[in-house]
């Protein structure tokens, strides 16, 4: 059992790193996609709409498997010999793609809920569009998006467990190995649950702080 404490610590590190990296990349992708979705260019908007609809409509597990095995096929073909995709990398890519699709829709809704008059006021002063984004849209959009983003981050932390299916040694995989080898499934899965619960609780606390930080003064 003692050996598994070390393994759980390593698995925890992997899970946290995976969530943070794919969450950060996914939010960046989501912001870009939201901007594309709101673009005047119909082709861009339609392409982004296609992406978010497909990704949100397919189970995450399948996306992970497709990216893992598809990536292996593609890279092997490129190098002319069998190359196996790194499980962590496949995890980052698939979770980023998924997270980007969900946050894109969150950001898009948040931008649309900002009264058009506030953007017109910025334009009427002669502000450049990107100044309008930074001054008017982004700060208010983040505030509006925060509750939905909190939910999405919690989902992300839990979804990292799916990456264990392609061999990533995260919390979930450590628990599964321990459960099998020591024949104590309940102990190991309860331990894993506690770790995930700790992580999601921490995420909730952080988002509550952020919501307070970005609250509209005076409400």
């Amino acid at each position: 059992m003692d050996g598994f404490v070390v393994q759980f610590v390593n698995g925890l590190k992997t899970t946290v790193l995976l969530a943070l990296v794919s969450g950060a990349l996914g939010m960046a992708l989501g912001l870009l996609a939201a901007a594309g979705r709101l673009s005047r260019w119909r082709a861009v908007s339609a392409a982004v709409g296609f992406y978010t609809t497909i990704i949100r409509g397919v189970p995450e597990l399948i996306i992970i498997l497709l990216i893992y095995f598809g990536g292996t096929v593609a890279i092997s073909a490129f190098f002319g010999r069998y190359v196996e995709v790194n499980a962590f990398l496949a995890g980052v890519v698939s979770l980023t793609v998924v997270f980007g699709a969900y946050t894109a829709e969150i950001f898009r809704g948040a931008v649309l809920s900002i009264p058009a008059g506030q953007i017109e006021a910025a334009r009427s002063l002669g502000l450049h569009p990107w100044q309008t984004w930074l001054l008017v849209i982004l700060p208010q959009m983040l505030r509006i998006a925060l509750p939905a983003l909190a939910n999405q981050w919690i989902s992300l932390v839990k979804e990292t467990s799916l990456i264990s299916i392609v061999g990533l040694t995260d919390i979930m995989r450590v628990a599964a190995i321990g459960a099998g080898s020591l024949r104590a499934p309940l102990t190991f899965y309860l331990a894993a649950s506690a770790l995930y619960l700790a992580l999601t609780s921490l995420a909730l606390v952080i988002f509550n702080l952020l919501e307070r930080r970005f609250a509209v003064p005076g409400r």
């Binding site: 506030q118 006021a121 910025a122 009427s124 002063l125 208010q140």
Partner: peptide, 17 residues
């Protein structure tokens, strides 16, 4: 040109934050 023309709107359009 916009910077040289101030505009005041019906709904004020102040930035609440």
């Amino acid at each position: 040109v916009r910077a040289s023309m101030g505009m005041v709107f019906q709904n004020f359009n102040l930035w609440p934050h």
